[in-house]
């Protein structure tokens, strides 16, 4: 696994680029109606606001089910009925089947917005911008935001809209502010999602916030790794079910860890637990299963990514030696080393 020219980071980048192209431009390649077929089959990927995309993010049907099926049904029936929950459960089931297999690997390997932020971060290295780590105390303050967004914008506001107590714009409140909606549609040549809807105060507020977030994320990503991922409700949804997931991060206790900490430096989410903890605690709520901690762990088998009983990747000293010569843990390329193919460490 760790011999020869295999580099997990490069494989992941390849997967991310392919996913980005398929999700953003797949509709054009696969045909006008094939996109609908895909969106029925894989309801957890790209943005529903993109006219050309080949699939939909799971957050849009989740919000729509709460808005149209649950909220409006409660109003119509003046009560609660099992039938209104069936479509919602179907949406969640469809979504979690994907999540049970991939779970957080969606964030680290497939999400288009995650890929764009990683590419921007690489651009930041090329432009020699400083790297801004988040200290553990700041991470503690940032982490609750994604849960608030999940509960407030993905669940509460769409439900309130269905109940008729929130404006229609709040029916997909998270999508209203999601920067992916703008960035992925800009990538397909339309700026319509960047435009602010001025037909009402709610639309205008959401549109202004969305545009502001896009600008902030684009620039911040040059210096901060994955700035939006840290508050993304999709990460929170994954976190809820990460213990049930087939794909997971595993870390075994090792006495050498205390003096090292290189795994946290390599982590694009600055997760301190991967260094300071082991066992289930090391697989934190912010993990995106990108595998960089395992790549940069210098000890054999301490950190690994597993799917079911199968080891997808595990740390090893040989791999670490090669990896560190190509790229620093913070993502900065080691230029001299990248020119030569390496056969051994």
């Amino acid at each position: 696994m760790t011999t020869g020219g295999f580099v997990l980071g490069r494989v992941r980048l390849g997967v991310q680029i392919v996913a980005l192209i398929v999700l953003l431009y797949g509709g054009s390649v696969l045909g006008h109606y094939m996109s609908d077929m895909l969106s029925n089959a894989l309801p957890a990927l790209a943005c529903a606001y993109d006219e050309q995309t080949s699939d939909y993010c799971v957050l849009i049907p989740t919000q729509h089910q709460l808005h149209h099926r649950v909220g409006e049904a409660i109003v119509r029936l003046q009560g609660f009925a099992f039938t209104m929950l069936v479509p919602l459960l179907f949406t969640f089931l469809n979504f979690f089947l994907l999540f049970i297999v991939l779970n957080k690997a969606f964030c680290g390997w497939i999400c288009p917005l995650g890929t764009v932020q990683e590419l921007l971060y690489r651009l930041g290295r090329w432009l020699k911008r400083p790297l801004r780590y988040l200290k553990p105390d700041r991470i503690g303050r940032v982490r609750p935001i994604k849960w608030l967004l999940l509960l407030g914008l993905v669940m509460a506001l769409p439900l309130a809209t269905g109940l008729g107590v929130a404006p229609h714009a709040a029916g997909d409140a998270f999508c209203q502010i999601c920067p992916s909606r703008v960035i992925t549609t800009l990538a397909t040549g339309t700026a319509e999602q960047l435009a602010v809807n001025t037909s009402g105060w709610a639309d205008t507020t959401f549109g202004a916030l969305r545009a502001f977030l896009v600008g902030f994320v684009v620039i911040a990503a040059l210096a901060v790794r994955q700035p939006f991922c840290r508050i993304c409700p999709m990460l929170a949804l994954h976190a809820v079910f990460r213990r049930l997931s087939l794909t997971r991060l595993v870390k075994v206790e090792n006495e050498r860890c205390e003096k090292c900490g290189i795994c946290t430096k390599a982590c694009p989410m600055d997760i301190p637990e991967i260094w300071q903890a082991h066992g289930t605690k090391a697989f934190g709520e912010d993990c995106t299963l990108c595998g960089r901690c395992a790549e940069y762990c210098p000890d054999q088998g301490v950190i690994s990514i597993k799917t079911g009983p199968f080891v997808v990747f595990e740390s090893s000293r040989d791999y670490y030696r090669k990896r560190i010569k190509r790229e620093k843990p913070d993502g900065t390329a080691v230029r001299k080393a990248t020119d030569k193919p390496r056969r051994d460490a």
């Binding site: 703008v182 602010v196 001025t198 969305r210 545009a211 502001f212 600008g215 684009v218």
Partner: peptide, 8 residues
């Protein structure tokens, strides 16, 4: 659109 670009 100009408003959107402005906020961005």
């Amino acid at each position: 659109l100009r408003l959107g670009i402005g906020f961005a």
